[in-house]
C-alpha cells in the first residue's frame, strides 16, 4: 500500500530554513534516514515545502473563487514536508516513522495517511481490472 507521510509545520519551520550548524546536523541525520528508506526499497518520493508565507489558498463558494495570501494560522495543521512510501501495511509505516529523527528542533508531529487504491474505486463503471493493481 502507498502512504503519504506528512511532516507537520512548527513555528520554527514557518520561519524558513536557516543554515545554522544545528540545521546542518539535522539535515545529515535526515539524509541518513532517507538512505535507509531508499535501501529498503520503500521510498517513492519526498520533498520539503517552503513556509506558508510563500503559499496561497484559493477558497471555493459556489461560483466564487477567493485567493488568500499566506502565512496561515493554525501552524500545527500545516504541512512542512512529505514522503510517499510503498509499505506492506500501516504497522510497517509506523515502525519506520518511529525511527525517523525528530524533523524539527522542538516537539513535532508526523502524520501517516494511506492513499486510495484501485480496489477502493470498484464502483467506477469503467474501472478496468479492479482488485488487480
Amino acid at each position: 500500500m502507498r502512504v503519504m507521510v506528512l511532516v507537520k509545520a512548527t513555528e520554527d519551520s514557518e520561519k524558513g530554513f536557516l543554515p545554522t550548524p544545528e540545521a546542518k546536523e539535522a539535515m545529515e541525520a535526515m539524509g541518513k534516514f532517507n538512505d535507509e528508506l531508499r535501501n529498503a526499497g520503500i521510498l517513492l518520493d519526498a520533498d520539503g515545502l517552503k513556509p506558508s508565507s510563500q503559499g496561497k489558498r484559493v477558497t471555493f463558494d459556489g461560483p466564487r473563487r477567493t485567493v488568500i495570501d499566506g502565512p496561515f494560522a493554525e501552524t500545527r495543521e500545516l504541512v512542512a514536508g512529505f514522503w510517499l512510501w510503498e509499505v506492506k501495511d500501516m504497522d510497517e509505516a509506523v515502525a519506520w516513522v518511529k525511527r525517523c529523527p525528530n524533523p524539527m528542533p522542538g516537539p513535532s508531529e508526523i502524520e501517516i495517511r494511506p492513499l486510495y487504491e484501485m480496489a477502493d474505486w470498484q464502483w467506477e463503471s469503467d474501472a478496468g481490472g479492479h482488485g488487480n493493481p
Binding site: 538512505d35 531508499r38 535501501n39 529498503a40 526499497g41 520503500i42 521510498l43 510503498e86 482488485g131 488487480n132 493493481p133
Partner: peptide, 19 residues
C-alpha cells in the same frame, strides 16, 4: 492477490539494488 503482489516485491528488490 499474492500474485500481482510479486510485481511490488520485485520493484522493491530493484529499488534496494539501485540503492
Amino acid at each position: 492477490l499474492v500474485r500481482p503482489g510479486l510485481c511490488l516485491e520485485a520493484q522493491r528488490l530493484g529499488r534496494m539494488l539501485a540503492g
